[in-house]
Amino acid sequence: MSIQHFRVALIPFFAAFCLPVFAHPETLVKVKDAEDQLGARVGYIELDLNSGKILESFRPEERFPMMSTFKVLLCGAVLSRVDAGQEQLGRRIHYSQNDLVKYSPVTEKHLTDGMTVRELCSAAITMSDNTAANLLLTTIGGPKELTAFLHNMGDHVTRLDRWEPELNEAIPNDERDTTMPAAMATTLRKLLTGELLTLASRQQLIDWMEADKVAGPLLRSALPAGWFIADKSGASERGSRGIIAALGPDGKPSRIVVIYTTGSQATMDERNRQIAEIGASLIKHW
């Protein structure tokens, strides 16, 4: 058993032996400061991975655009179909130039040979490839079927209504393609630790998130040596930015963190910096 498999397999085991986890309101002070700095709403939640207890939250039940963070949920739905014998990670999917949409750094290189379902999930999560996400959405029946999958998990909040890139429109008060921090954190925890997916599929999902290559300026920039993080970021119109993550010290995840912001006029660099500073406060007061 690899170190990674050891880590995921023991998450339920550690729940019975973990020390009490204490919240630190200092992080919420930073979240509120980020709102002031960005001139935008910020949603935040910090969840204990083992118990599911909410440690801190700010606007946990307000809607925010999901942006590309939905791609983790999408690959969770794909893995659920794999577990049920309805899909194979090794199945190759062929597509054409007409299928390519904006920001497809991986799929645009494989027009001649296509990509496997496994490769598409990797591209969608680690590189946020939009065509990969659309191709995967097609395999499960489209955005409405992803919403149905989430409903069956008990998440009646999170919804996907459109495809890439239209889902990134982020119109104020538009509930399409949105979630709430509390709903996203709970759903992510179920995917990573619950019985919905097999152990192998849970491991695969967290491996893809751990290999994320496009979230460096966010929480990863504040991470001390030896800490673990598996994450997925997102960005969209109207100053929207977000990240969902499982992270913790000693090389294993122990908390879920979800951060969303929307409605800012700030630059992408400034949005990144504010999220990184929230992460730094979280780690300092861990």
Results as ranks from 00 to 15, higher is better:
residue 3 I to L: 14
residue 5 H to R: 12
residue 6 F to P: 09
residue 10 L to H: 08
residue 10 L to G: 10
residue 11 I to R: 06
residue 15 A to D: 03
residue 15 A to V: 15
residue 16 A to H: 13
residue 20 P to D: 15
residue 22 F to I: 10
residue 25 P to V: 10
residue 31 V to I: 15
residue 32 K to T: 12
residue 36 D to G: 15
residue 41 R to C: 05
residue 42 V to T: 04
residue 45 I to S: 04
residue 50 N to D: 15
residue 57 S to M: 10
residue 57 S to P: 00
residue 57 S to G: 08
residue 65 P to V: 04
residue 68 S to P: 00
residue 68 S to C: 01
residue 77 A to E: 07
residue 79 L to S: 02
residue 80 S to A: 14
residue 81 R to P: 00
residue 82 V to N: 04
residue 83 D to K: 01
residue 85 G to T: 06
residue 89 L to K: 03
residue 95 Y to L: 07
residue 100 L to W: 04
residue 103 Y to D: 04
residue 105 P to A: 06
residue 108 E to V: 11
residue 111 L to R: 06
residue 111 L to S: 12
residue 112 T to A: 13
residue 119 E to Q: 11
residue 122 S to R: 12
residue 122 S to C: 12
residue 130 N to S: 00
residue 132 A to G: 04
residue 137 L to V: 04
residue 138 T to Q: 14
residue 139 T to I: 11
residue 139 T to L: 10
residue 143 P to H: 05
residue 150 L to M: 08
residue 153 M to A: 11
residue 157 V to A: 11
residue 158 T to S: 10
residue 164 E to K: 03
residue 169 E to L: 09
residue 169 E to G: 07
residue 172 P to F: 08
residue 172 P to Y: 08
residue 173 N to D: 13
residue 174 D to K: 03
residue 174 D to A: 04
residue 175 E to F: 11
residue 177 D to R: 01
residue 179 T to G: 01
residue 182 A to D: 07
residue 183 A to H: 09
residue 183 A to C: 07
residue 184 M to F: 07
residue 185 A to S: 06
residue 186 T to D: 13
residue 194 G to L: 08
residue 198 T to D: 09
residue 201 S to M: 08
residue 206 I to C: 11
residue 208 W to A: 02
residue 210 E to T: 09
residue 213 K to V: 11
residue 217 P to S: 11
residue 219 L to M: 06
residue 221 S to P: 07
residue 223 L to T: 11
residue 223 L to S: 05
residue 228 F to L: 05
residue 232 K to G: 00
residue 236 S to N: 11
residue 237 E to N: 07
residue 238 R to A: 13
residue 239 G to Q: 04
residue 240 S to H: 08
residue 240 S to C: 13
residue 242 G to T: 02
residue 242 G to N: 04
residue 242 G to D: 02
residue 242 G to W: 00
residue 243 I to P: 01
residue 245 A to M: 05
residue 245 A to R: 02
residue 246 A to G: 04
residue 246 A to M: 15
residue 247 L to G: 03
residue 247 L to A: 03
residue 249 P to K: 07
residue 251 G to M: 12
residue 252 K to G: 08
residue 254 S to A: 13
residue 254 S to D: 15
residue 255 R to G: 02
residue 257 V to L: 06
residue 267 T to P: 13
residue 268 M to H: 06
residue 269 D to T: 11
residue 269 D to G: 11
residue 271 R to W: 03
residue 272 N to H: 04
residue 272 N to K: 00
residue 274 Q to R: 09
residue 275 I to D: 00
residue 277 E to G: 08
residue 280 A to R: 15
residue 280 A to D: 14
residue 283 I to R: 04
residue 285 H to F: 11
